[in-house]
Each structure stands twice: as structure tokens, then as C-alpha cells.
């Protein structure tokens, strides 16, 4: 069974988590940005930063996952040290 590490609850079964989609830059300025944000989601053959939720505890956090290997590289809370040092999505 696949394991995801929740920053609050530690390693848990992946079935306890809900995928919420890629982390977007929330500061849209133009129509083009909005269009991009709505429809053109990132789809890399590599690492994607994405929102996840640990459903039993309702912990929403960010995980970095490789979309070619399905390897979860790290996970952290928004605003944590790890988040501040992470590269922008």
C-alpha cells in the first residue's frame, strides 16, 4: 500500500488522503492569467507541487510528487520553512 506522510499525522495510508490538484500562483492579474489558471493546469513529466488533504484530520498540505514515477518526494504545510524554500510551481 502506498504511504503518504502527513506533516501533522506522520506516515499514513494513501487511501486516507484526497488529492486537491496542483498548487497555483494565486495572484492572477490579466485575463490570460485567469484562463491559464482555470484550464491550463501543469502536466509535467517530472515533479509537481500539489495540494493534498488528510481527510480524517482535515489537514490540508502541499506534497511534491514525481508524475512519472509516482514517488512522493516530500510534504509540508503551507507557510512552513520547507514551503518557503520550495521552488515556485
Amino acid at each position: 500500500m502506498k504511504i503518504m506522510t502527513c506533516p501533522v499525522n506522520g506516515p499514513r495510508n494513501i487511501s486516507e488522503f484526497q488529492w486537491l490538484g496542483p498548487v497555483h500562483d494565486t495572484a492572477e492579474a490579466t485575463d490570460a492569467d485567469l484562463l491559464n489558471r482555470l484550464f491550463f493546469a501543469p502536466n509535467p513529466m517530472g515533479v509537481l507541487r500539489e495540494w493534498w488533504r488528510h481527510t480524517p484530520s482535515n489537514t490540508v498540505f502541499i506534497a511534491e510528487r514525481d508524475l512519472t514515477t509516482d514517488e512522493i518526494l516530500r510534504s509540508y504545510l503551507k507557510g512552513s520553512d520547507a514551503d518557503r524554500t520550495a521552488s515556485p510551481a
Binding site: 502506498k2 487511501s15 488529492w19 502536466n43 509537481l48 508524475l67 512519472t68 509516482d70
Partner: peptide, 10 residues
């Protein structure tokens, strides 16, 4: 989302 053809038990 994933770009791999791996299978999963769940």
C-alpha cells in the same frame, strides 16, 4: 494526476 502506466491495488 500521473503520467505512468503503473497499476494500483486500491
Amino acid at each position: 494526476q500521473l503520467a505512468s502506466t503503473r497499476s494500483t491495488l486500491p
